[in-house]
C-alpha cells in the first residue's frame, strides 16, 4: 500500500480549489485558461465550455473540427467529416453500429466524446475499402437493410485481427457487441468464417 500512499502524497503546489473559492467557482472556470500567474499552468487542466476547434486524426489524416464538450465523436465523423459509415442506431453503444477503431481497438463512436478522441488514432469503416472482410460481406450477402453492416465489418475485422483463425463459435461470441435487427447473422458469420479460413 505504501506505493499508493506515496503517489497520493505527491501534490502540486497549485491549489485549484482555493482559486475556485476566490473567483466565483464555475462561472469563472473558463477564465482559468487565461490565468498566467501559476508556474504549473502548463500542467493544469483546461476547462472547456462551448465550441472549440480540435484536431482529430482520422484514417491517417489530421482534420480540424469544431466540437462542444457534448459533441460525440460519431457526430463529428458523420456531420463534419462526411464519414457516414458509422451509424447512429442505439445512441448508447448497445447496437455496435457506430463501431470504429480508436488506437486500434474497437469502440463505439456514439459513446465517445469528440474531445476525448483528440490525439488518438481513429479509423472508420471507410478505411477498409477493398479489405477481405468487406469483400466477404459482398460475396456472402451479409446484409439486409444495411444499417448494422459497417459496425459488423469493423467488428469482424477487429476480431480476426486478434484471432485470425477463429472458429465459428469464437466468431459468434466475438461479435456479441453488435446487433442486427434483420437477423442476417448466419451470413455475417459465414462471411467471417471465409475470411478466417482465407487467413486474412
Amino acid at each position: 500500500m505504501t506505493d499508493l500512499k506515496n503517489k497520493a502524497a505527491k501534490k502540486s503546489g497549485f491549489n485549484r480549489r482555493d482559486f475556485f473559492r476566490g473567483s466565483g467557482a464555475i462561472a469563472a472556470a473558463t477564465a482559468l485558461q487565461t490565468q498566467t500567474a501559476d508556474a504549473f499552468q502548463d500542467q493544469s487542466p483546461q476547462i472547456i465550455s462551448g465550441e472549440t476547434t480540435i484536431t482529430l486524426n482520422v484514417n491517417g489524416k489530421d482534420h480540424q473540427v469544431k466540437a462542444e464538450p457534448r459533441t460525440t465523436l460519431l457526430e463529428v465523423l458523420r456531420y463534419q467529416l462526411d464519414l457516414t459509415g458509422a451509424k447512429p442506431v442505439s445512441s448508447d453503444g448497445s447496437s455496435g453500429a457506430s463501431t470504429i477503431f480508436v488506437d486500434g481497438k474497437p469502440m463505439t463512436a456514439s459513446t465517445i466524446l469528440a474531445l476525448q478522441a483528440a490525439g488518438k488514432k481513429i479509423e472508420t469503416v471507410e478505411s477498409l475499402g477493398g479489405d477481405a472482410v468487406q469483400q466477404a460481406f459482398v460475396k456472402y450477402d451479409a446484409e439486409q437493410c444495411g444499417f448494422c453492416t459497417p459496425g459488423f465489418v469493423m467488428a469482424v475485422r477487429s476480431f480476426l485481427n486478434k484471432k485470425p483463425n477463429a472458429s465459428e463459435a469464437e466468431i459468434r461470441s466475438g461479435l456479441n457487441g453488435n446487433i442486427c435487427r434483420c437477423g442476417t447473422y448466419a451470413n455475417i458469420v459465414e462471411a467471417a468464417i471465409s475470411v478466417a479460413k482465407g487467413g486474412n
Partner: peptide, 16 residues
Amino acid sequence: AFEYASPRTEAEVVQL
C-alpha cells in the same frame, strides 16, 4: 451542455 475537463493528476480530479 456541460463543461469538460481532462485533468492529469489525481489531485486535480478531486479539485474539479
